[in-house]
C-alpha cells in the first residue's frame, strides 16, 4: 500500500516535471499523460481491499466487497484524459501547420 502510494506520487512528479521542463509540444502532452497515469494509479490503490471481491455478483460468497467508487472515478478520469490528449494533439498538429515548428519557444509570439 505504502509502496504504491509513493510510486504513484513519483509518477505524478515525473509527469509534471516533464510537462514543465520540456520545450517540445509533443513531450509536454506525453508528460501530461504520465501525470494522468500517476493519478489513476493513486485512485485505483485507494479502492484496493485485500481479499475482497468485486461487487458484481448476485450470489456471491459472503466475503467483504469493495466499494466501486474509486474504479468509477478512474474510468471517468481515463475518458477525460483521453479527450484532453486528443484535443491537444490536434492543436499541436495545427500549430505545426501554422508555424512549421513544435518548439514552444519558437511558436511563442505573445509577449507581456
Amino acid at each position: 500500500m505504502q509502496i504504491v502510494f509513493i510510486l504513484s506520487m513519483a509518477v505524478i512528479a515525473t509527469g509534471m516535471y516533464a510537462c514543465i521542463s520540456s520545450r517540445n509540444i509533443i513531450k509536454i502532452i506525453i508528460g501530461l499523460g504520465i501525470a494522468n497515469y500517476g493519478v489513476n494509479l493513486f485512485l485505483v490503490q485507494l479502492g484496493y481491499k485485500a481479499g475482497a471481491i468485486a461487487p458484481i455478483f448476485t450470489h456471491a460468497q459472503s466475503l467483504p466487497m469493495v466499494l466501486p467508487t474509486p474504479q468509477a472515478l478512474t474510468l471517468t478520469n481515463i475518458v477525460i484524459s483521453f479527450a484532453t490528449t486528443a484535443l491537444m494533439l490536434s492543436v499541436s498538429l495545427f500549430i505545426h501547420k501554422k508555424t512549421g515548428s513544435l518548439d514552444i519557444k519558437e511558436v511563442g509570439g505573445l509577449k507581456e
Binding site: C19, I28, L32, S81, T84, V91, F94, I95, G109, L110
Partner: peptide
C-alpha cells in the same frame, strides 16, 4: 492557438 494551448496545458495540469 498559442494562447489556447497554454490554457489547455495549465487547466489539465
Amino acid at each position: 492557438v498559442e494562447a489556447g494551448f497554454k490554457y489547455l496545458v495549465i487547466s489539465s495540469l
